[in-house]
Amino acid sequence: MKVVLFCGGLGTRLREHSDTIPKPLVNIGYRPIIWHLMRYYAHYGHKDFILCLGYRGDLIRDYFVNYQETMTNDFTLHVKERRVELHSTDLDDWRITFVDTGLHSNIGQRLLRVKSYLQGEDTFLANYADGLSDLPLDKVIEQSRARNAVATFASVRSGQSFHAVQSDGDGVVTRMGAMPEQQLWINGGYFVLRKEIFDHIEEGDELVEKPFARLIEKRKLSAFQWDGFWQCMDTFKDKISFDRMEARGRCPWMVWQRHPAAAR
């Protein structure tokens, strides 16, 4: 399946980095978050990517056009010949299509602008490109097919540290606790979409508001609840959290390291 990655937003809540680079290029260790996400999809055999570009799309193009395999792969440098012998490779069998979808376009409009690149695809994958997870993608696709859903998304627990509050009509608190402890599920930004999704998006629509509301009315929207690892990179605090996990070698989203034999 083709994978559509929405990577054109301004990233206003991560200004410490996104003033100079787009959010998808913010590094976790040696590689940007978009690389980690693409490695995740490639692990499940989905290596045909469509990047919906916008803000600083030139930097994303440049990153992949001038990709440095030596940053994360073992290699031997033949000094006299100035030749690099790679012992492994990251993306030699990937296919990446770069599409300018506008600086201020919303997600729904970015998807409409890459419709022509999805011709012949009955089903495709999509992602906000700002969160990582160990979500079992094959099971999400299986559920989407079984339920005959036009759209399926990963429903995850919020990792925010805020306290959720429930109160009665008089303002008396009846329940209070950390958000992950509450029965609160959010859209994790991992989508399985059928081509019929384009029949439900009108010009100007955001993806998950009016189009998904139309699907709900027709009972064609499905949620795959995942209680495993999921975390977005929304703020500088999230960036630090990812960096600490990478430094400790505790990276649940790196499914390609835990199950290398499953990579296709």
Rank of each mutant, 00 (worst) to 15 (best):
T76N: 10
L14M: 15
R56E: 12
L59D: 01
Y30G: 08
R56Y: 14
S18T: 15
V26E: 09
T12A: 15
Y55E: 05
C52G: 03
P32T: 07
I34N: 02
Y44Q: 05
K47S: 05
H43Q: 05
T20G: 04
T72Q: 03
Y67Q: 03
M38G: 01
L25N: 08
K23H: 09
G54P: 11
Y63C: 00
I33C: 02
Y55V: 02
R39D: 04
S18C: 15
A42H: 01
R61Y: 10
N27Q: 13
D74T: 09
Y41P: 07
E69R: 12
L25T: 06
Y30L: 13
Y63E: 09
D19W: 06
Y55H: 14
L59E: 07
T72D: 11
I60Q: 11
L59F: 06
R13N: 15
Y41V: 05
N27D: 13
H17A: 09
I33Y: 03
G54K: 06
D48E: 14
G57R: 09
H36P: 02
T72W: 01
D74Y: 09
K47A: 04
G45N: 04
V79I: 15
H36W: 12
R39I: 05
W35S: 08
R15Q: 14
K47N: 00
F64K: 07
T20S: 14
N73Q: 12
S18W: 08
L51S: 02
V26C: 12
Q68P: 01
P24M: 10
G45P: 03
T12H: 14
H43D: 06
H46W: 08
R31I: 13
Y63R: 02
D19P: 02
I28D: 04
F49Q: 01
L25Y: 07
D62R: 11
R56C: 04
Y63D: 05
D19K: 11
D48H: 12
P22T: 08
V65C: 11
C52R: 04
E69L: 12
Y30I: 02
H78S: 07
G54V: 10
R61P: 00
K23P: 01
Y30C: 11
N73R: 12
